[in-house]
Design a protein around this nucleic acid. Sequence first.
DNA 1: CTATATTAAGACAAATTACTCTTATTATCA
DNA 2: TGATAATAAGAGTAATTTGTCTTAATATAG
Lengths: 142, 142
Amino acid sequence: MSLIFSRQCEYAIQALIYLAKKTETEWISIKEIADHINIPQHFLGKIFQMLSNKGILKSKKGLQGGFCLSKPSSDINLKDIVDTIDGVAYSTACVAGFPNCSNDSPCPLHNSWKDLREGIVKMLKMRNLKQMADEISKPGYN
Amino acid sequence: MSLIFSRQCEYAIQALIYLAKKTETEWISIKEIADHINIPQHFLGKIFQMLSNKGILKSKKGLQGGFCLSKPSSDINLKDIVDTIDGVAYSTACVAGFPNCSNDSPCPLHNSWKDLREGIVKMLKMRNLKQMADEISKPGYN
DNA sequence: CTATATTAAGACAAATTACTCTTATTATCA
DNA sequence: TGATAATAAGAGTAATTTGTCTTAATATAG
């Protein structure tokens, strides 16, 4: 099997949207998030460490501690998250793994994939956490 | 890290394009293919077993044996290959892994992803092995 | 200021994916 | 028709990803 994003990345997106729904100054614990979106608590801890190291989250230890966004939710887009967790290969590497594929010397899939890939990157840049947190609060969304 | 297709699937695509360049009746050995496209020989063997079981390839044991396409190369498209190796999740599952995401109750990414996904599926259906084998033979392609 | 509960961080284990080695099959040639 | 070499098939191993358990840090209450 294979998907666009790793499991870690999926969890990161879900968790950060949950976080973006909260007030920006509140410290939220991993336990609360993991329980709400139903994912492994300590696995999320590891993911949030990465996001902290890259400056997307701030963390605070001890009682009443937790995590919070380090910037306004409208300043964090999907590409920031995906690039941090999964790296940028999805936006640069050959989709079929041909070793010498490039714009100059394309593989037979290169040009078919080009526009699709650009569409994906564009979308990831467009969508930010604030938008998504707002949407998820609308009726009909989950 | 994470990409659209698994490593197995990338190898399958490359190997089948190589096969499509040959005459349709010839039996080609795994060793020849693996050497040419520079991938692990026995790993390719396993991949070709799957493709044989699903009816995309025919195999023949013993001296002068090997594999060949079970249909004309123009009748095998990328979607056939991807679906066989990686399954169909990429075309149906929620891109961010939200457990209850659907058209009726979409996640905040669902509608942004919808058209992109459909574009990918459409492309995979459009491109067949013959086209790709022809392209790879043109100057400038690899 | 000390004990404790709560939390993040980091070490460890399981599952999956990628890869390699061995065995079984079979066409060919002596 | 039997030995042999080439081949697919399948068993076994390594690496990566996912998930869990343990330890270290710290805010708070007494």
